[in-house]
Structure formats: structure tokens, C-alpha cells
Design a protein around this nucleic acid. Structure first.
Length: 561
RNA sequence: UGGGGUGUCGCCAAGCGGUAAGGCAACGGAUUUUGAUUCCGUCAUUCGGAGGUUCGAUCCCUCCCACCCCAGCCA
């Protein structure tokens, strides 16, 4: 199954065990799940976990997964988000087919059920002001007090509720509450609000309603209407389950869906809170919802992270009920693992250092051949230009190298990938003493990178020819937050990493990169994975670093110094 | 001091009474025209703690400890 669908095998978890058991015992004939986002922001990594779980489970068990917008709060929801969510779910690799729904599609039915609750004496209209209601609700350790409006007759409640719908009252004047138990240890059962007055324009229903159902009243009933068999949500809704069941049990709904909870995803150095992500966008800390540093699906897409990498990551993390914080290194690893076998290799010099090959004929250039992928000959080769002047990475040269430095240094010979062996002969510095160029000699016999005499070099450097290199801008991104647990000290914004973006200009890339597609992540050899950003123009492409290559040398430098 | 949850390697996470999977990270070593990849190898006598039941417990019982969620007319 997993093999033929080509998706990551999520393995086994308690949700799948429950579903399997329900299927085996005949408690469910088939599986129907749903992914229920509220359209008040962009989808992020946390949603990816839920999407992979809900759609993945449906696919694995031959069932279906609905995409249902939980659009019950018009003051926060927008069409822009409804559109972005659909795009992102598809991008992640899932399809809801004909099953696109909106909780707002059920407003009329939900309203009818609300009247049913009133008629059966299980709901009442309460005029208590918000502050007073909060006081009456009691605390975590003290029971609440019954509202004085709790004893209104069904007839009176029905009249009031209809007038609420008719728009006779202003926002906040009253609400419809379920009549359950003000002394319950579960706060959700202390006569929860079912409907509130909101004179607001809804992106779907416009101005036809001025009262809207709350999450609790809309969610479970929507599940029942759609025949959802397994309503999977995160742990914080666990306390809502008794209410979810109470409503299902007191209403003439067509099905009895069951809710199951799993732990939401947390990742180190990252924030997965729609509220905070919204703030980052709103206050301009990032360029937008799709800023490559954002943990949003749109952000990952722009950063060059393939959807398969996200699926792989989610699969590796697993599904359980224990709160945890996944090391962001696990994400990077999943990204590298999915990119490495498919990303075309290219050469790009981020911080150029000119290298003049003295014994190479002036004005001459030649064409060499570079392999597109070391493990896949089928991906072919491409021509690259070699000439008297080329550029290498500044990091690949050291005037006074430490013992373990394999790269270029005075008198040392290295290989230019797919080119020749070159030896550093002389350092050229400016008045300030900065190295501006290196004079080298090359060995004509080593064309292609092999020495006929079997001579070895310790390093192979990437490079670009001055003759046809294309100038580019490269944006290096690192964690948006400076600490593994942003906000742990109270203020998340104070933990924003001021160095999360390093813009490099004057970078030189091989010509093949001039017209790189924004949806194909490539590997800049020895540097990392990069993708063209839409900001780039033909004459001056822009690249975003998706993730760097594992760098053992950097580690050696950092520790063994 | 109310209700609901969770505690297995540095980080995730299997395990469901028979004597601790796997991944990430880390650390060795081999290969390498990317100090990448790949490849071998090391990495929990121990499962929050203390008792108990049992021939035998991470899995069952009791008590204790720690952490998370809940007092929106948000979802």
C-alpha cells in the first residue's frame, strides 16, 4: 500500500490501532476522517502533521478524508486563508476529491438543532453580561453558580433565540447556553455557550446570519452530518470530549462520531502558534506568510523544501499522546534525505575569491563536462567553462592553515572539480592587507580532475569561471528564533534571532543556474541545497538556501580548535 | 486544594506479563573528483520514584513525584 502510493510509511500508532480494531470489530464499515482548519491563517508544520495523519489514515484504510473549514467565527476568517489552505493541502500531496465542506454549510441545520435543544429543555438564552458570566462560572477549584436566566421556559427561550437570529439584539447582549452542570469539575460542562451574537460579515454566508455557533456546537455536529467515523484532534480538546458526546447524545444527529486526541507538534527553535505567526507577519518581522523562515507550508515551499520531505519528517516523528519537542535537526535531516537523491548538482561560489592561473593561455577558455548527479548517470552531464581566471570560495583558502585544513594554502595543490589540479603560488593583497586574489599554476595533464601519475590531492573545490559566471544574490536562512524554546521566558518576540537572514550579494553561479526554476531545489556542491526565489530576475537570480550540507569540517573547527 | 492527561537513551518513539525496535544527534572506522553521500561499528543490565502481585513486570496493583491542558460570547 505505502509502496504503491509512494508516500512515507507512517508506521503504526495508537490512532491506526484504534481504527484497525474498529474495522475488525465491525464498529465502522469504512473510515471517514476530516482535516478541519479554521481559515484564519496559513497552514504550518503542525497542520502538516494533522493532514498527514487524517489523509494518510484514510488512504491506508481505503476510506476518505474531508477538508472542512471550521468557519464559525467571521471576525477572524478570510477568503485569502480559505484559498491558501486548499493550495497548501494539495501541495503537501493530498486530495479531498469532492469532499470539500464548510461548517457554515450547516448553519441552518445547526440552528434547527439548537431549537431542538431549547424545546427539550437542554438550552437557554442567557442575558448575563460576559464579565458576570465569567464570575458565575466559578474557578478550577470552586463550582459555578446557576445563571438567574437558567430557568426560563422553553417557549420564552425559543422566542428569545429567534429574536437573536432576527438581529434584535446587539453583539454580546445574550447567548444561547447548554443546560448541563455548573458544578462540574470539567469547565466545559458548566453550561457552555452554543451561540453568540456577531453582527459580522462572513466570507461564505455574507450577512445572512448575525448569530454564530461556537466551536463546540458546530464541530461534533458537523462530524455527524458528514459521517465522520474518527474525529482526530489535538490534546487540548480532550476536555471537550464530554461535551462533544453530550451534544451528540442529546441531538437527533445522523451518526455518532468519536473523538480521539494526539499530541500536537512542537519543534525546537520554532514557533507553531497561529497567533504568534500572525503577529510575525503583521508586525513585519518576516516578509510574509511565505517568508522562507516561516514554518508555514508556504514558507517551506519558497525555501525549497519539497513536500515529500515534510511527509517524511512527520512520519519519523510519529503520533503519540505525550507532549514533546522535536529537535529541528530531525527536520533538516528529513529534508537532506529527500533532496540528496534527486537534487541536480551545480556549482556556485557564495563569497568569491579570484584565482589567476598564470600558465593558462590568456584569452583562452575551454569547455569541460560536469556530472549532474554522482549517483544517477541518467541525469546526464552539462558543459562548464574553464579559463585563466576563475573564482573559488574564500573559505577554501587560508594563508596560515591549521594542520587539518585540506584546502588551498600557499604551495598547496588541490583539485578544481571537473577541472584541473591547481597549486597556489602567490597571494595578492590590497593595501589593507586583505587577500584579493591568488596566483596559481595548473597541471594540463590533470584535465577532468585525474592525475595520470596517480598523484593525490586532499581537497576538491567547487568554482566558476570568470568568463561566464552569473552574478546572483543568495539568501542564507537560519532559525527564526535564537533559542530552542522561544517564549520560555515570557516574551516570544524577544527571542527572535536577529541574524536569521544573511543576504549575500555578488555571488557567482554557473550559467546553468541563470534560469533556474523556482520549484526545483538544486544542490550547490559542497555548500547546500538552494532554490531560485521568485524575487530573482533573469539578469540577477536570487537563491534561497533550503538547508546546508552536513559540514564535518565546520564541526572540527568549532570544537577541536 | 477541582477535572482531564503524560512520564522508555541528549531529542522523537516502539513495546500490550517472558526478559528494552527504529529514527535524529553524538562518537569511532572504510570508501569518496562534494571534509557531502554511502558503508560498517559504538551508544538504555534499564523503562519518573518507592512498595506489592508473579517463576518472571517497562507492561498488573498501591502510594508518591514531575510536567502539560482547562476558568474565550477563540478554535
Amino acid at each position: 500500500m505505502t509502496a504503491e502510493t509512494g508516500t512515507a510509511d507512517m508506521g503504526r500508532d495508537f490512532i491506526r490501532d484504534i481504527i484497525q480494531a474498529d474495522l475488525d470489530a465491525g464498529r465502522a464499515a469504512s473510515v471517514v476522517t476530516r482535516f478541519p482548519p479554521e481559515p484564519n491563517g496559513f497552514l504550518h508544520l503542525g497542520h502538516a502533521k494533522s493532514i498527514c495523519l487524517n489523509f494518510g489514515v484514510a488512504r491506508e484504510f481505503g476510506g476518505k478524508c474531508h477538508l472542512r473549514f471550521d468557519d464559525t467565527n467571521p471576525v477572524k476568517e478570510e477568503q485569502l486563508f480559505i484559498d491558501s489552505i486548499q493550495r497548501d493541502v494539495r501541495w503537501l500531496g493530498f486530495d479531498w476529491g469532492e469532499n470539500l465542506y464548510y461548517a457554515s454549510d450547516y448553519f441552518e441545520q445547526l440552528y434547527a438543532w439548537a431549537e431542538h435543544l431549547i424545546e427539550t429543555g437542554h438550552a437557554y438564552v442567557d442575558d448575563t453580561p460576559p464579565e458576570a458570566m465569567r464570575a458565575q462560572r466559578g474557578t478550577l477549584t470552586e463550582p459555578g453558580q446557576n445563571s438567574p436566566f437558567r430557568y426560563r421556559t422553553p417557549a420564552e427561550n425559543l422566542d428569545l433565540f429567534r429574536r437573536m437570529r432576527a438581529g434584535e439584539f446587539p453583539n454580546g447582549a445574550c447567548v444561547l447556553r447548554a443546560k448541563i452542570d455548573m458544578t462540574s469539575g470539567n469547565m466545559n460542562l458548566r453550561d457552555p455557550v452554543l451561540y453568540r451574537i456577531l453582527h459580522a460579515h462572513h466570507p461564505r454566508t455574507g450577512d445572512t446570519w448575525c448569530i454564530y455557533p461556537t466551536y463546540d456546537f458546530a464541530h461534533g455536529q458537523s462530524d455527524a452530518i458528514e459521517g465522520i467515523t474518527h474525529s482526530v484532534c489535538t490534546l487540548e480538546f480532550e476536555d471537550h470530549k464530554p461535551l462533544y458526546d453530550w451534544l451528540i447524545g442529546h441531538l437527533p444527529v445522523p451518526a455518532q462520531p468519536k473523538q480521539y486526541e494526539f499530541a500536537r507538534l512542537n519543534v525546537s527553535y520554532t514557533v507553531l502558534s497561529k497567533r504568534i505567526l500572525t503577529t510575525l507577519v503583521r508586525d513585519g518581522h518576516v516578509s510574509g506568510w511565505d517568508d522562507p523562515r516561516m514554518p508555514t507550508l508556504a514558507g517551506f515551499r519558497r525555501r525549497g523544501v519539497p513536500p515529500a520531505a515534510l511527509r517524511e519528517f512527520v512520519s519519523r516523528v510519529g503520533v503519540a499522546r505525550a507532549n514533546s519537542v522535536v529537535d529541528v535537526a530531525m527536520l533538516d535531516s528529513a529534508i537532506r534525505d529527500t533532496l540528496n537523491p534527486v537534487a541536480p548538482r551545480r556549482m556556485a561560489v557564495l563569497r568569491p575569491l579570484k584565482l589567476i592561473i598564470e600558465n593558462y593561455p590568456e584569452g583562452q577558455t575551454e569547455t569541460l563536462e560536469a556530472i549532474n548527479h554522482p549517483d544517477h548517470p541518467a541525469l546526464g552531464v552539462r558543459p562548464i567553462t574553464f579559463g585563466r581566471e576563475i573564482y573559488v570560495e574564500q573559505d577554501d583558502f587560508m594563508e596560515n592553515p591549521p594542520k587539518k585544513f585540506y584546502r588551498l594554502s600557499p604551495g598547496k595543490e588541490v583539485r578544481l572539480r571537473y577541472g584541473y589540479f591547481v597549486t597556489c603560488r602567490e597571494i595578492i593583497k590590497d593595501d589593507a592587507g586583505q587577500v584579493t586574489a591568488l596566483r596559481c599554476t595548473y597541471d594540463p595533464a590533470t584535465k577532468g580532475g585525474n592525475a595520470p601519475d596517480g598523484r593525490k590531492v586532499q581537497a576538491t573545490l567547487h568554482w566558476v569561471a570568470a568568463a561566464d559566471a552569473v552574478e546572483a544574490e543568495v539568501r542564507l536562512y537560519t532559525h527564526l528564533f535564537a533559542r530552542p524554546d522561544p517564549g520560555a521566558d515570557g516574551d516570544v518576540m524577544a527571542d527572535i534571532n536577529p541574524a536569521s537572514l544573511d543576504v549575500l550579494t555578488g555571488c557567482l553561479v554557473e550559467p546553468a543556474l541563470a534560469s533556474a526554476a523556482t520549484d526545483t531545489t538544486v544542490q550547490f556542491e559542497r555548500t547546500g541545497y538552494f532554490v531560485a526565489d521568485p524575487d530573482g530576475i533573469r539578469e540577477r537570480p536570487v537563491f534561497n538556501r533550503t538547508v546546508g550540507l552536513r559540514d564535518t569540517w565546520a564541526k572540527v573547527q568549532a570544537t577541536g580548535r
